[in-house]
Write a protein that binds this DNA or RNA. Sequence first.
DNA 1: TATCATAGTGTTTTT
DNA 2: CACTATGATA
Length: 638
Amino acid sequence: MITEGELLDDLNPAQREAVLHRGSPLLVIAGAGSGKTRVLTRRIAHLVLTGETRASSVLAITFTNKAADEMRSRLVNMLGDEARYMWMSTFHSACVRILRTNAERFGYSKSFTIYDTQDSRRLIEQIEKELNVDPKKIRPQALLREIGAAKSEMVDFESYRDRASGPFERTVSEVYSQYQQRLKQFSAMDFDDLLMVTVNLFEACPDILDMYRDRFKHILVDEYQDTNQVQNRLVLMLGEVHRNVCVVGDADQSIYMFRGADVRNILEFEKAFPDVKVIALEQNYRSTRNILDTANAVISNNRSRIPKNLWTSSDTGPPIFRYRANDENDEARFVSKEVKRLVDQEALFYSDMAVFYRTNAQSRALEEAFVMEGIPYKVIGSTRFYDRREVKDLIAYLMVVANPADDLSARRIINSPKRGVGEATLAKVVEYAKANKINLVDSFSYATEAGVSKKASEALAELASVISDLVKMNDDGAGPAQLLATVLERTGYRESIKSLEVHEAQSRMENIAELVSMAGRFGELQDMLETVALVSDADDLYDIEGKVSLMTIHIAKGLEFEVVFMAGMDDGVFPHMRSIDDPVQLEEERRLCYVGITRSKRWLYMTHAWERMLWGAYTSSIPSRFISEIPDELVRDL
DNA sequence: TATCATAGTGTTTTT
DNA sequence: CACTATGATA
């Protein structure tokens, strides 16, 4: 176990102050690379080590599950097993935990289902059709976005209805209301509900709120600049009594406005707690001076910004390298050659390097070039493993087993694998379920009564019997892996894949195998489904050993690399077209650029292409304005 | 009902 | 271009 001295020894005065401060709320303004994670970890360790707080009274919120796991394992190293009792997770995971414990108090089943964005979109599209709204004219995504925005400001569908004006908002209002009713009926919640419903729960049941307020003696939140209003509300609610709230953030790294994040929460925090202690961490330990100067030069172009002076005592380092490529293939070739050269001449490892881009689509050309050069790489993010068709299909079976009220998942499995159930059959069972007020899954056994053809009703009866067996197995304690194996065999899912094209079949089987092996790590179905619903792209960061990492800049937040390539530095790509004529959004793009630059410890490359394949046609572009914001003397052309 | 071909349509970023 | 939605045909 670590000693108190060791905890504080290698900290600078500001960091130490942040670790030691007591007695009032604390706001740590932490510049990029200033050691905020270290401060957060040490602060928690110090609280527990000195006996001031028990680990189980600590609530620490991070941006990703991965970050939470890392912090927890560091704390376990410092404090021993007691650290395992800390609440350390994302807002979403913490809320799920609270909601599961108290679900019955507000009319949801304890085994409520969590819908991801894709599920929500499907449900909304379904509702649009029922309401005779053309999903082509008003895209489900647009509705979901609007509904999500409302939820992140805690506007429920009743209040939305009251304030709706104009045709669009009235449509949204109708869909929103239907959507919520349906979610409730299915005992399901979407991402935004997890947060909003928790706040509602606390408001409706003061005794529950008091319980958690009392329990969490210390609350710590990382990446505060990326919290939205509901999250802010949760923190303020929970922290109100003990007031031992410590939040860490950097307004210059706020890059999730589009998701409802509100930098003003940092200011709100100061307003909510007038006696707040503010500590600024301004020494950067990560990057060379050239990189820091570059970052500072770029970000200083943001007008709505509180100036800050991030400094470093490290060496000047290499200049920023710029390459002007003919097209995206030339750009990718340059990057791959340079990666090779750095490995050969600078004795760097592949895992020291990362390539960042603005949009996932840009990874393609890079991947091709890497394959060509034989460079090992890993694309982080892009299509989530759990979003793959076959994976979602199989998980839908498990979701129905865990929560039979989940009609959306029932709809998904009704004809996958294909069992001769089409639109007509679906309509009949849906109608039957509605008329008899039963779950859609339960209607499968009454297909004949519902007027379904003999062939289809036989298929549905068989499906119903498989599901009831699965439910029984689950009750008897069979693990998720065993359930999956049963689904694969009994439903003919495995068999159905054989009819696919060889390459496709192989890739699907691989994914299924991975899913089954992942399921094997869980004893409880519910645990598995929860993990599946809440893991993010960024949580996928294992397995980069010996590989170059490719990712969007958003995912790169919080990471650092010896060498960073920022590809696609073209006006229109980055900053993105849709942000260019809105000053507010342009500033967010610039912060994103700042985040990218500050990920680099030593080498930074920016590449741009004069021509780029876009929507199947070559489009010409000019270098990103962000490049021209870097002082010339820091840049070297290659 | 399934399958195939064709048309149309859309691409930011994600817990 | 790549994906999906739609519609004609078996």
